[in-house]
């Protein structure tokens, strides 16, 4: 157990620091932004696409099961990333120009 911790200490550090950072970073978000924030976070965990790309890129070209599953994973991961960012951007577009509403008619 102790061995495991010292071998993987880098990762354990990252996990712990990220947990605190994640909480800290969005600690004071106004409720107006809850939905866009959720949507933005949704797009960020689309980083799982990188795993899908690695799976796909490593699969042997005669291992059809791995190819098909990997291919599906790449599609789904891309959907998550692209869809997530585009939806978030669309939501936030609605907020644009609100800071100086007097300029607008």
């Amino acid at each position: 157990m102790l061995n495991f911790i010292s071998e993987n200490q880098q990762y354990i550090y990252i996990v712990i620091l990220m947990i605190f950072l994640g909480i800290e970073v969005i600690g004071r978000v106004p409720s107006v932004l809850h939905t866009p924030l959720m949507s933005g976070a949704n797009a960020i965990h689309g980083v799982v696409i990188i795993g899908a790309i690695i799976v796909m890129g490593k699969a042997e070209s005669n291992n059809y099961l791995a190819l098909i599953l990997g291919f599906l994973a790449v599609i789904l991961g891309t959907l998550n990333v692209v869809g997530g960012f585009v939806v978030t951007n669309r939501m936030l577009e609605m907020f644009r120009g609100k800071q100086n509403p007097n300029k607008k008619k």
């Binding site: 950072l21 600690g27 924030l37 960020i44 799982v48």
Partner: peptide, 22 residues
């Protein structure tokens, strides 16, 4: 963890923690 890939780890845990707080 699986791929020793730090960006996946960072992004994933960040969203995991922020999402839980949200």
């Amino acid at each position: 963890f699986l791929y020793n890939n730090k960006v996946m780890l960072t992004g994933g845990i960040l969203v995991g923690a922020a999402g839980t707080l949200l």
